[in-house]
Design a protein around this nucleic acid. Structure first.
Lengths: 205, 205
DNA sequence: CGCTTAACGGAACTGGAGACCCGTTTTGAA
DNA sequence: TTCAAAACGGGTCTCCAGTTCCGTTAAGCG
């Protein structure tokens, strides 16, 4: 992305431009969708010359990848309820609310679409989700220590199991999940985890 | 899609062209990805004038939607093993093999990307998955009748629960699931279903 | 076996997104 | 405060995917 020949200038204007362009890219992605993305349009929204966007990011693809990297930074802290069901429900509802939100939902589908078209973006998306999972996995670990789940349960897999049906709904069923879907996802993940479906090192047939 | 003023001619050449173009579109989608799709390229692959593609489908978007409709027709029959675990494992592995296949996997991600960008394509994709679920739901119904699952279990939801983690892996983790993932998905779906996570009419908090 | 016309294909046209040039503004260090 | 160069921005050009024109092929009916 940023080339640094000799001297870089991250101060003042540069940072302001980056912020404005990323915000504009997010808006454009949410409103227009991944295709229909237009360099000139993004520049107009950011009140920035389109040459600037072209020079700094080179392509729409790189811009989306950078946007994802930026999104990964802003990791919202998880809520601690003390019970596994409460924690996973909180997680499920957070995902559900995000995907149901007009802007955020469209943004996420657009970003996923972008990731399927470019390896760098795919890597950025992967990193984004790994970051989110890092944030929530500890609540599963705590449940293991309380004896609520098998000792060798794969914490990260449980968190993925909560998100999976919600994203599946959004992408293949076509519309965002509702609150009941979120609760169902949390319940199902716990039931499967209790039954040992997510224990590590599963070499069986 | 097809306009029919006065008289249509579905025979011979027309059918051959449609078949060739849909096949070419599938290849192009799998190789180039959803963006980078080129009308002229598809026409070249199908050994057909690009004017023809343009006139018959109007846009890439409609072509992909039509491809999906065509894919929904070719529903492969499910394998009956007699046990719920066997059936769901068969389903999970079928999905897993499909997504792991070089061509098919890329095709599916591309198609999903296309669906996020256009309502008609999204509807076609939804119909495709509904068709697949129709095919497999009966094996869950049979399990209910054998008393293996709660009576008011949502059969279709169980099938979705099998696919969800596999697609989630492909789209957000970035690479296709393996056979162990497939078995895990089947196990998890059964465990959750047994625990009553997929019973219908879940109006609780 | 013709004849009408739906459907196809080659080739030329066109609009707009991306690439670029060059003058202007901002940065940051001396 | 000064100044070299890093970064920005307006305007222009280029290239090619999508579109259209019109002559050609073949489907299907009498």
């Amino acid at each position: 992305m940023e080339v640094s020949p000799g001297h870089v200038r991250p101060g003042g204007r540069t940072a302001r431009v980056r912020e404005a362009v990323l915000a504009a890219a997010g808006d454009a992605l949410a409103e227009q969708g991944f295709d229909h993305l237009d360099l000139a349009d993004i520049a107009r929204r950011a009140q920035v010359g389109k040459t600037t966007v072209y020079r700094r990011w080179g392509s729409i693809t790189n811009l989306v990848a950078d946007l994802l990297a930026d999104m990964a930074e802003q990791s919202l802290p998880r809520t601690e309820t003390g019970s596994l069901l409460g924690d996973l429900q909180a997680n499920a509802r957070l995902v559900q609310r995000t995907l149901s939100d007009q802007r955020q939902g469209r943004l996420f589908t657009a970003v996923i679409a972008a990731a399927t078209c470019d390896p760098r973006t795919a890597e950025a998306l992967r990193h984004f989700y790994e970051t989110r999972i890092d944030e929530w996995a500890p609540c599963v670990q705590a449940a293991i220590e309380r004896g609520e789940l098998p000792a060798d349960t794969d914490c990260r897999e449980v968190i993925r199991a909560v998100s999976a049906p919600l994203y599946y709904r959004l992408l293949t069923v076509g519309h965002a999940p509702d609150e009941a879907d979120a609760d169902q996802a949390a319940e199902a993940a716990i039931a499967a985890a209790r039954a040992g479906a997510y224990v590590k090192s599963w070499q069986q047939s």
